[in-house]
Each structure stands twice: as C-alpha cells, then as structure tokens.
Design a protein around this nucleic acid. Sequence first.
DNA 1: CTGAAAGCGCTTACAG
DNA 2: CTGAAAGCGCTTACAG
Lengths: 342, 342
Amino acid sequence: MVDKKSNIHDVARESGVSTASVSRTLSSPELVSEKTRKKVHDAIRKTGYRVNRAARNLRTKTTNSIIVLVPNLGNPFFSAILSGIERTLSKEGYNVLFCDTQNDIEGAPRLRDYFEDGRTDGILILDGACPDAELRELEKSEYASRVAFVCEWVPKHSFPVIRSDNEKGATLAAQHLVALGHKHLGHVAGPPENVLTGVRKTGFLDALESSGISTGDEWIYNGDFSLESGVQAAESFLQLQDRPTGLFFASDLMAIGFITRVTDAGLKVPEDVSVIGFDNIEIAGYIRPALTTIRQSRHKLGDLAAQTLLEGLKHTEPSLSPLIKVIDVALVERQSTCPPKK
Amino acid sequence: MVDKKSNIHDVARESGVSTASVSRTLSSPELVSEKTRKKVHDAIRKTGYRVNRAARNLRTKTTNSIIVLVPNLGNPFFSAILSGIERTLSKEGYNVLFCDTQNDIEGAPRLRDYFEDGRTDGILILDGACPDAELRELEKSEYASRVAFVCEWVPKHSFPVIRSDNEKGATLAAQHLVALGHKHLGHVAGPPENVLTGVRKTGFLDALESSGISTGDEWIYNGDFSLESGVQAAESFLQLQDRPTGLFFASDLMAIGFITRVTDAGLKVPEDVSVIGFDNIEIAGYIRPALTTIRQSRHKLGDLAAQTLLEGLKHTEPSLSPLIKVIDVALVERQSTCPPKK
DNA sequence: CTGAAAGCGCTTACAG
DNA sequence: CTGAAAGCGCTTACAG
C-alpha cells in the first residue's frame, strides 16, 4: 500500500480536500470538521504519509531539536544525566542532538550559530568552560531564553542553572567526618578552573569552621575528577608527614582511585584514613570498602533541566531574575568512613 | 555588525551578485570565479550570514543528520562507543541524534519513518532487540544501504555489522584459564535472548573442547551484564556443592559484582576462584584485585561504525554480501586469575 | 562563469 | 469550516 513517498498533495487528492485542510487536521484538528478529519486520516493511512520535517521547519521557523553540549561524551558520569534529558525531551517530541565540546574544538560553530543555522530551538550546556564572549552575545540576543545550564555553569550570566545542592553536599560530608571525631582533614578537589571546585571546597571549609574546627591547615589537592587523578592524589598523600585522618573527594572516581592506590601501599580504608566521595555513581556501592558518598540525582537533574529549557522556549522574554533550580543531595553512609584511630 | 538574521538574498544584494552565485560559492566554489567568490565572502562576513539548514535540507532532500539507537543511554558501557560515533560523524558535518530505545516504547516511530520523516540520512543501531518486521521492511526499501549495526546485531539481516571479535575474546579467556591449569570452569553469560550471549558462550565452550577439556558439566548462569546480576550470580555460585575454580564473565560489570559478593562471603579472588571479565571498562584496572579481562576497543568500534555508515550513504545499492567488520580484542592480564588450588 | 526562475513540502493569513 | 495562494530560504537545471 505504500511505495513512493507521498506528500501533502497526495493526501489532499486522495481525500478530496485541500492541502490546507490536511495540514490543519494534523496541526490544529479543532479547526476542522469531523467529517474532513476522517477523510484525511483515511487518506493518510492509505498513502503512508508522513509530514516532512524540513518543510515544516522551514515554514514555521522552528526546528524541533535541542542541542546538548557535553564536555566529554565518553565520561560515564554524564550518562545518567543525558538519559534524563533525552527521555523528557523525546517525550515532548523533540530531537536531541549531542555535541561533544572537546571534539569539535576546531570547526565548532559559535553558540549563536546553532540558532541562526536553523539547527536548534534551544541549548542545554553541561560545560562550565563555555566561552564567555559567546555567552554574552547570546545573552543579549533574541535567543537568551533558549539556553540553560546543567550541573556546571558559568558565573555572572543570567541563564537558568539546574544543579545539585553542592554546598549542602560538602556540608554533609564535613559534618559526617566531624561527627565521627576527625579533626585533621583533607580535600581532594576538582581542577581550579572548574566552578564546582570552588563551591564544594568552600562548602566543606565553611562547615568545618561552623563545627568549631579551625581551618587553614587542611591538606588540599587539585585533581580532575578522574580515577587516575585519585591515584595521583594518593601518591601525594603518601608523601605527607602528618596525614589527615579523613578526606572529602569532589568525585567518586577520584575517591576510588585513591582507595586503590593507598590500599596497595598497605594502608587500610577506613581505619587509616576515612574517605567520602561525591556523586554516588553506581559502582560506589560495589567496591570494597563500599564508598560513603553524597548522592546526586543525576537522572532528575537531566529531567528538570529539559523541562526548564522547554519552559523557556515558550517565553520570548528571558526571566528577569536568574532562575536557579537546586536539586537536593543526601549522605549515603557505607563502609569507607569510621572514627579516627587514637 | 550583525543584528537581524540575514538570508541568501541579503548576501546577494550586499555582494552585487545573484543568489545562485552565493549558493554556488558556498556549495561548489570551483564553479565560481575568484572575483565573485571574494565578493560573496566579504558580504557573508559583513552580514553574518549562515545557511539555513531547513531550507537546504528541503531543497536537497537530505538531512545531514544520523540517528543512533541505543538500548539504554544511561549505561556507561555505551559512552565510549557513542563518543567515537559522535566524533567521526560531527567531523564530517553531521548532526548526531541519540534515541534511547527503552524510553520511547510507546510513540516510537517505525524505523522507516525516521527516513520518510525527513529526519535522518542514516541509522546506527546498538540494539540487538530491534523489531524484526521493521528491519525487513527497511531491508527491501530504498534506505537499505543507510543502516548499520554496532556491537550488537539482529541475525539474518543483510545490514553491515561492526562488532568486536567476540569469538576470539571468548577463546582467549578459555585458553588463559586452561593455561593456568583450571579444569572445572563456569560461565556467567548475558541474557539468553541477547546475540552476544550465544556467540561468547559458544566461543568459550568450543575453545575448551579444543583444549581437550570435555564440556557439558560447566556451571552456566544467565545474567544481564549489570553489576547487580553479577551479585546474583555470586549468590547462586555460593550455593554450589562443587564449585568451578575459574569463571568467565560476559561483562566486566558482572565480574565486579561477583567479586564483591563472593569476597564479602569470605572467598578470595583469585585464590579460591579465578575471574575473567569482558570489555575492559576503565574501572577494571582500579578495583582490587584488578580485573583480568578482554579488551574491546569501544571508541574504535564507534569510529568505524560511523565511517561504514557514511560509506553506505554514498551508494544507492546495498552491498551484495553482508558487510561484517570485526574489531580485534586482546587479553588484559591483571590480578583476578591464577592457578587453581590443589 | 552567471542569472532568472522553478520548486522542494509544508503552513497560515486572508477571503469567503 | 474550507480553499487558493503566498512564501519560508534554499539549490540547480536551463539558457546564455
């Protein structure tokens, strides 16, 4: 029954109505009589007609697509977030394009070009290292309400940000360690230029102060969130004369890399050093000692980000006050923390 | 200098040539005199012109997009493959759309619709559970050369398949275990309906036979590739009267789940039971004991799949003999295997 | 090498 | 409620 690809004219002919009526029964059925609707639907079934997206997009100046900018698609940390984004967006009928921002360093279009291209209706950015100039340009443009940040963000911009409650996470980590009796603590942070690095570090130190622990002599190490940098942190830790008894890591992967290296060196976790991570990636519960960590609801993050962006597409004007949606986090106590040795 | 979005007419006016010349200098510059090209490029710079994709797509009946069908975007196993796909495709100027096949169970278009929609130029499928009827329909259609499978596949179809050398991987695992002196072996496989399950299981058993080990009494357990199913396998293993001394797992995640559970129960890996995985995911080298496994080049898999599909887009006719590209695998020896106890 | 013009397949103001 | 017609922004045979 189907063979040659059919277009709206074929359907119009088949059903004996105008192309306008065909188009309307598809886009605004309430404008069309039931009788016509039925004829059109029959004809569509008979012809196997499908609306041509390119034509519709050209006509309506819309793309039905959302671009997601990810710093590294190969990093499993993002997978749950992306899954949440995809689910919500595809449910609303959007195509989801993923762009790895590391890959197209060279020929990458400027952010604004994605819009002027007619390539996207909106952009979701998971990359805090986004070029400032391009963001400023977008901010002043008519596309300002079509951009949102997830997880990471660039400070001093007015785009919505959907992120975890990093401050609370860091505070929970500090309080947990303090409650166990630790006094000499350390922090393995992300890279200095990353937004999350500052927020989590400050949150951790502030919470220590509030708990009556004078800060200033903590051991601080800057990693890059990866397993390997956890190993590096361990190397450095092992050189220390006076080692902290408890450590807060800005990512689970770094915590895991650290535990592995330090265990190989003969130390015991948590007896010799308590370790608490951040993220609660799936494997955290499966390594031994099972990792105590801060749970981030990554799926929810993606979900909410998609919803927020969709909301933004409806308004032409960007919201006046910068919109920040903070997702709750929680301490997940497992085996990698315990009271310090006397 | 840029404000209102400009179109090809603006550029034509600005440069004093026809829209045809503008279009040509962008798409087929060799057809245009250098003088005209220069005028056009100047005008483009001045106006900030960008080709409207929807219009070009409509006109050329092309989409410049490739759809990637993934069974579960949240599964980190796929991330490296997707990264390879995205890199290769975006380098060639394609948009990459990811669709989670679990998500859109309901409103998912039939495969053929993605083409008739004008939504894609090609489809890359990572999901062996693809509906057979839709594949048959595609196979007979004009789109037959625009589809390729990666990692997994559906048997008895003529689409290209880009996959790892699963047979060799299973053989290497068997030979490694046998070389260590193991005689009583077991296999934790994927789910029965998965293509990889059969291939890896058969490869393993055949290699055992060839090594002079009579097969038939191995312990076989069907998991689903996940950490949790590795734990389940361990539960079952612990009940066994006469336990195998060496186990081959169809995924690293299952191997890791198994090690964790069995270690909690007081067994020692590898002394009490040798474990070998499949995949070589990054964490495999960081757990303890470090996991002996079979390396799959996931990035390369994605890369080659993208190239193969792109190649297919150039030909109208599907290749006569089904195209199968097999990527080499290798044994990665670490700490989770050793000779059996006497 | 260049331009005028048709047309890709839709949607939607406009008129009835 | 319906249809005729314009037009979204390109590309490309065709003629010169």
